[in-house]
Design a binder for these strands. Structure first.
Ligand code: FES
Ligand code: FES
Lengths: 146, 146
DNA sequence: GTATATTCAGACAAAGATATCTGAAAAGAA
DNA sequence: TTCTTTTCAGATATCTTTGTCTGAATATAC
């Protein structure tokens, strides 16, 4: 079980962060991404495809083709990606699974969870993926050689 | 998609909280639970069965049979239930889905998520299900008539 | 003992998420 | 034009989660 985000969404985030490290406009083919990030090729293809449909990425066909960000990295947050793939239901739903989440019929952790949900939301919107990618310490994102 | 906990786990929590409201040792048959909580009958049966195997519940067959808590409600936390159903992987895994989560190769949100993960863990262990059940404002748990 | 209410166990079905395969379409290079 | 590289699109496969069905075992009530 993946926590918080679906597998698709995790892959999407990993891929977009990788794109954010490239000079603006540079196209990266799918297989350069899967080689680095160990994501199944065709699965990633479908994910990038839907991000393109949502307007987050741009795609070019043919040789020298590939995917690139449709916006400057400074204008994209993790929340944009999460929203595009998993939706924003988590901002509204009860963590214990009750039909609806509101102060009217609160569950036992409604107050506590409410605060934490806000913090998670802040984590997703307060930084742009440009700086996040540059801060990234993981080896997949560091060495320049491919 | 359910956030944080699997559907099974959500159902387990809802059911155990219900049992915690009953006088100690009182047996509650599965269908009394499903009627109140709108959980599919046989699915809940399997869930309660595994909680029994894990030692959280006790079951009795025959008329006047049913499920009851194996421990006093004051000794059970949400974490016991989550651990029994979903496991404790969330306490150790990277929220962006990278292979492992450690300070050695941190992802961009490792620090932030680390704090929030601790808070979520605290939410799960700091209160027992006895008090949580009594605080519960949701109608499923209030009216005594069945 | 017989009937009834219930858990227990396992097989099965349906749905959703994840992953793979194949071929068409498009762009560039020769 | 022809060939190659790559995205795009859709069909299919596999796995996991969720949910259903059936019957056996067990304990109580009669
Ligand atoms: S009602 Fe459960 S989190 Fe709001
Ligand atoms: S490495 Fe991502 S949360 Fe720790």
């Amino acid at each position: 079980m993946s926590i918080l985000f679906s597998r698709q969404c995790e892959y999407a985030i990993q891929a977009v962060l990788f794109l954010a490290l490239k000079p603006e406009g540079e196209r990266v083919p799918t297989n350069a991404l899967t080689r680095r990030l160990k994501i199944p090729y065709h699965f990633l293809g479908k994910i990038l495809q839907s991000l393109t449909r949502k307007g987050l990425l741009r795609s070019e066909k043919g040789p020298k083709g590939g995917f690139s960000l449709a916006l400057p990295p400074e204008d994209i947050t993790l929340f944009h990606i999460v929203e595009a793939i998993d939706g924003d239901a988590f901002t509204r739903s009860c963590v214990l699974g009750f039909p609806e989440c509101s102060g009217k019929n609160p569950c036992s952790v409604h107050e506590t969870w409410g605060k934490q949900r806000d913090q998670i939301y802040q984590m997703l919107v307060s930084r742009n993926i440009g700086e996040m990618a540059r801060d990234m310490k993981r080896p997949e994102y560091r060495s320049k050689a491919h």
